[in-house]
Amino acid sequence: MATGGRRGAAAAPLLVAVAALLLGAAGHLYPGEVCPGMDIRNNLTRLHELENCSVIEGHLQILLMFKTRPEDFRDLSFPKLIMITDYLLLFRVYGLESLKDLFPNLTVIRGSRLFFNYALVIFEMVHLKELGLYNLMNITRGSVRIEKNNELCYLATIDWSRILDSVEDNYIVLNKDDNEECGDICPGTAKGKTNCPATVINGQFVERCWTHSHCQKVCPTICKSHGCTAEGLCCHSECLGNCSQPDDPTKCVACRNFYLDGRCVETCPPPYYHFQDWRCVNFSFCQDLHHKCKNSRRQGCHQYVIHNNKCIPECPSGYTMNSSNLLCTPCLGPCPKVCHLLEGEKTIDSVTSAQELRGCTVINGSLIINIRGGNNLAAELEANLGLIEEISGYLKIRRSYALVSLSFFRKLRLIRGETLEIGNYSFYALDNQNLRQLWDWSKHNLTITQGKLFFHYNPKLCLSEIHKMEEVSGTKGRQERNDIALKTNGDQASCENELLKFSYIRTSFDKI
């Protein structure tokens, strides 16, 4: 039985969820670079991206490699990797027998973001014989899940209580170790020597080791999670996991709180800001991140802002960003909400898709409305799209047979046209069989910064309504002859009103 693990408890099935942008060198404390989270699957090609990484700022997932063999891993080693800020997950990587050479110096898994409450997941690794993470000293947050690894031993010899604050939620089941077939031998045991430290858990006094050649490092209890030197002297209180010299914040392997210019500090002093819960960055760093993602459509890219001495992905609820200094300031009234469309555009074809934009005031991208039916549609669209004030790209209304009016965009005031449909149009209306009105132009103002209007096959939309939009939106004169079809717009509506004058002759039985 794995020490510190839980057996036999019912657990939810383990679901495996399925960018080499360097964020800056980590400095003297770390020998390499800070790398983003990685999802490495199918083959070993991307694994080489770990070569210079000291910190993975995010998670590391290595999974679904069915053609790899043990010899493929023999020359692979990433000794610079010290810390993973989120979680480490391995799933069905064939041929991998140990992690001792792959990650010989991995010391800390912070667990800032977890995989279903777990910071370390080893699942269905069919050839893994031992973990071998002999320098792993601290899992700051989260638990361990090690399950269905039929060859995995050296679990009962690990004292997880020396690595985690609590072992109650560890789930370590259905491994070879369960069948008591392992016969784990710690260093020196074969020669009758006791080389590794022994600890007591559940009444068992057991030597602690990761492999037959690597003991588990056990520091004096007084050192807590700070770690200790090879001689057993406690590291500085700002260290986490390990250090090369005692009581020196510049000799830590990793930091308990924050890293700044080669030393570990309790908090980031001005003019620095907390970033990702582990390091200090200056304003320029946060500003660069903001600008890199301002026009990016890459998933996970955030326009970072500053709030409460932190550089964070977005302002919290009730705050909006001051564009001059990136500071989050309290909103006066309802907060603006910028919604970034991942692929640059979004099609609204149902109430469900409209709900995804609920509360958005600025759309960074283009909207395509293609709704053919739905219950209580006008009210639903207004509830979900009615706060949109600005669209950076274009607005396209296409084959939306259920629409009679666009009044559900009740606050839309600006279409920038930074991206144009077919390279020309910022407003595009095609084949809307029941569209009769755009907006009530006596109450609604709309500016279209650039781009043209396109109207074709809107049989109940009168040309007068379209011409009014040209005047109000500032697009009059931009359109070419064929942009607004004269014969297919309003051709099934009563669009022309003329005053009919009647004269009559009164007659009676005795007068003409």
Rank of each mutant, 00 (worst) to 15 (best):
Ala198Met: 07
Cys286Ala: 14
Leu50Trp: 02
Cys286Val: 06
Gly111Cys: 00
Asp288Tyr: 05
Asn149Trp: 00
Ile185Met: 06
Val218Trp: 12
Lys148Gln: 02
Gln216Asn: 00
Ser324Ala: 12
Glu207Thr: 07
His290Leu: 09
Ser54Glu: 08
Ile163Glu: 00
Asn52Pro: 03
Cys228Pro: 02
Arg113Pro: 04
Val305Asn: 03
Gln245Phe: 09
Thr140Cys: 08
Thr85Glu: 02
Leu106His: 02
Gly192Arg: 08
Glu181Arg: 01
His236Leu: 02
Tyr272Val: 08
Met65Tyr: 03
Thr229Met: 10
Gln299Asn: 14
Glu57Gly: 08
His307Glu: 03
Ser323Ala: 06
Tyr94Thr: 06
Asn195Lys: 13
Gly300Pro: 11
Leu289Asp: 05
Gly188Gln: 08
Ser54Ala: 11
Trp278Asp: 00
Arg162Ile: 05
Leu133Lys: 00
Ser143Val: 07
His290Arg: 07
Asn135Thr: 05
Asp75Thr: 10
Cys301Ser: 04
Gln303Trp: 04
Thr85Arg: 12
Cys252Thr: 03
Lys80Ser: 10
Ile139Gly: 00
Lys217Leu: 09
Asn179Lys: 15
Asp261Ser: 12
Leu63Lys: 00
Phe116Trp: 01
Glu130Trp: 07
Pro31Ser: 12
Glu71Ser: 14
Thr45Arg: 10
Tyr154Leu: 02
Arg141Val: 01
Asp169Lys: 09
Ile185Thr: 08
Leu63Tyr: 00
Ser98Ile: 02
Met65Gly: 03
Asp165His: 08
Asn42Gly: 01
Cys219Arg: 01
Met83Ile: 15
Phe283Ile: 10
Asn43Val: 10
Leu114Met: 15
Leu136Asp: 00
Phe258Ile: 03
Val305Glu: 02
Phe78Gln: 01
Cys186Thr: 02
Pro270Tyr: 11
Asp86Ser: 04
Asp75Tyr: 14
Met137Tyr: 09
Glu151Met: 09
Val121Leu: 01
Asp248Glu: 09
Lys80His: 08
Tyr273Met: 15
Gln276Gly: 14
Ser77Lys: 06
Val121Asn: 00
Glu130Gly: 06
Glu57Lys: 04
Leu332Arg: 13
Pro313Val: 05
Asp277Val: 03
Asn295Glu: 10
Leu240Asn: 13
Gly183Phe: 15
Arg145Ser: 03
Ile122Ala: 06
His290Gln: 14
Leu89Lys: 00
Cys196Pro: 09
Val173Ser: 09
Ser77Met: 12
Glu238Ala: 10
Pro104Glu: 01
Val218Arg: 07
His212Ala: 10
Gln245Asn: 13
Ile185Pro: 10
Arg141Thr: 00
Val144Arg: 01
Asn42Arg: 00
Leu96Ser: 14
Gly241Ile: 02
Ile146Val: 15
Ser213Arg: 10
Cys196Asp: 00
Ile84Gly: 02
Met321Tyr: 13
Asn149Gly: 03
Asp169Val: 13
Gly142Thr: 00
Gln276Ala: 08
Pro220Met: 00
Leu102Val: 06
Val93Ile: 06
Arg141His: 04
Tyr171Met: 11
Ile201Cys: 12
Gly37Asp: 04
Asp261Gly: 14
Cys223Gly: 09
Val305Ser: 11
Gly111Thr: 00
Glu238Lys: 06
Pro104Trp: 00
Phe91Ile: 00
Ile56Asn: 01
Leu81Pro: 00
Gln204Tyr: 03
Asp159Arg: 03
Thr250Cys: 06
Tyr134Asn: 07
Glu151Lys: 09
Asn202Glu: 07
Ser296Ile: 07
Arg297Glu: 04
Ile40Pro: 00
Asp248Asn: 06
Pro316Met: 04
Glu168Ala: 15
Phe275Leu: 02
Gln287Phe: 11
Glu151Phe: 05
Pro330Ile: 15
Glu207Leu: 10
Lys217Glu: 04
Glu180Trp: 14
Val55Leu: 00
Met137Lys: 05
Gly241Asn: 01
Asn105Glu: 05
Asn170Thr: 09
Leu164Val: 15
Pro197Met: 09
Phe66Lys: 01
Pro270Arg: 10
Asp248Ala: 09
Asp177Asn: 09
Glu57Thr: 08
Asn322Gln: 07
Tyr273Gly: 02
Glu33Gly: 14
Asn257Asp: 04
Arg256Tyr: 14
Cys209Ala: 11
Ser244Asn: 05
Asn195Pro: 06
Cys293Gln: 01
Cys186Ile: 04
Pro249Gly: 09
Pro197Thr: 13
Val200Trp: 02
Gly58Gln: 00
Cys328Asp: 01
Cys315Thr: 05
Thr45His: 07
Val253Tyr: 13
Lys193Ile: 03
Trp278Glu: 02
Ile82Met: 10
Ile62Thr: 02
Phe66Thr: 00
Leu63Phe: 00
His127Phe: 15
Arg46Thr: 07
Arg69Asp: 01
Gln61Pro: 00
Asp288Ser: 11
Cys182Met: 03
Asp39Arg: 05
Cys228Lys: 02
Glu49Asn: 14
Ile306Gln: 03
Pro316His: 03
Lys294Thr: 07
Asn309Met: 11
Lys148Asp: 02
Cys223Phe: 11
Pro249Ala: 09
Leu174Ser: 14
Arg256Leu: 09
Asn105Gly: 06
Thr229Phe: 13
His59Gln: 05
Met83Leu: 08
Cys234Leu: 00
Lys193Met: 10
Pro269Glu: 06
Met321Thr: 10
Thr157Ser: 14
Ile146Lys: 00
Gln303Pro: 11
Asn257Glu: 07
Ala156Arg: 14
Arg162Asn: 14
Gly262Val: 03
Cys301Asp: 05
Lys310Leu: 12
Asp277Thr: 07
Phe123Ala: 05
Lys224Leu: 14
Asn105Met: 07
Asn150Gly: 13
Ile306Ser: 06
Cys228Ala: 01
Lys191Ala: 08
Leu136Phe: 11
Arg113Cys: 05
Gly188Ser: 05
Leu89Arg: 00
Asp248Trp: 04
Asn257Pro: 00
Leu131Asn: 05
Cys215Gly: 01
Lys217Met: 14
Asp247Val: 12
Ser225Thr: 12
Thr157Leu: 02
Asp86Ala: 02
Tyr272Ala: 03
Cys234Met: 01
Asn257Gln: 06
Pro220Phe: 03
Glu151Trp: 10
Ile163Leu: 09
Gly32Lys: 03
Gly227Val: 04
Glu33Gln: 11
Ser54Asp: 02
Val206Ser: 15
Leu81Gln: 04
Ser143Cys: 08
Phe116Gln: 00
Ser98Leu: 00
Asn295Leu: 11
Gly183Val: 14
Leu120Gly: 00
Pro70Trp: 11
Asp75Lys: 12
Asn175Ser: 06
Cys196Leu: 04
Val265Ile: 04
Asp165Glu: 10
Phe258Thr: 07
Ile146Pro: 00
Leu89Phe: 02
Gln299Ser: 05
Leu326Gln: 12
Ser244Leu: 10
Gly111Ala: 01
Tyr273Lys: 06
Pro271Thr: 11
Asp184His: 14
Ser54Arg: 03
Glu238Tyr: 07
Glu168Val: 15
Leu106Asn: 00
Tyr272Leu: 14
Asn175His: 07
Cys209Lys: 01
Cys223Pro: 02
Asp75Ser: 12
Glu180Gln: 15
Asn242Tyr: 06
Tyr87Asp: 01
Asn195Ser: 12
Val121Ala: 05
Leu174Phe: 12
Glu180Ile: 08
Arg256Gln: 11
Asp184Arg: 14
Thr221Ala: 11
Ile158Val: 07
Cys53Ser: 00
Asn42Pro: 00
Thr157Cys: 07
Tyr30Leu: 13
Phe205Gln: 07
Asn150Asp: 01
Asp169Cys: 05
Gly241Trp: 01
Asn42Tyr: 01
Asn150Ala: 10
Pro36Asp: 03
Thr229Tyr: 01
Val281Asp: 00
Asp184Glu: 05
Met125Gly: 00
Cys186Val: 00
Gly95Ala: 06
Asp184Asn: 13
Val218Thr: 09
Asp184Phe: 14
Val200Lys: 02
Tyr304Glu: 01
Ser161Ala: 13
Phe283Tyr: 13
Cys255Tyr: 02
Leu88Val: 07
Phe78Thr: 01
Pro313Gln: 07
Gln216Arg: 02
His28Glu: 06
Arg162Tyr: 14
Arg74Thr: 15
His28Arg: 04
Ser324Asn: 04
Asp178Trp: 06
Trp160Cys: 02
His48Phe: 07
Leu152Tyr: 03
Cys186Ala: 02
Phe275Met: 06
Glu97Trp: 14
Gly300Ala: 10
Leu152Gln: 03
Arg145Asn: 01
Leu29Glu: 10
Gly183Ser: 14
Val253Ser: 13
Lys148Met: 02
His28Leu: 09
Cys215Val: 05
Gly232Leu: 09
Pro36Lys: 15
Val167Asp: 03
Ser143Met: 07
Ile139His: 00
Leu44Glu: 09
Arg162Ser: 08
Cys311Val: 14
Pro269Met: 02
Thr329Ala: 10
Asn322Leu: 08
Leu60His: 00
Lys193Thr: 09
Pro313Tyr: 06
Arg298Trp: 14
Ile84Arg: 00
Arg110Asn: 07
Leu29Gln: 11
Ile185Cys: 13
Cys209Gly: 08
Phe258Gln: 13
Leu64Val: 03
Ser324Phe: 04
Tyr30Asn: 00
Lys292Leu: 13
His291Arg: 08
Asp75Leu: 10
Pro36Leu: 08
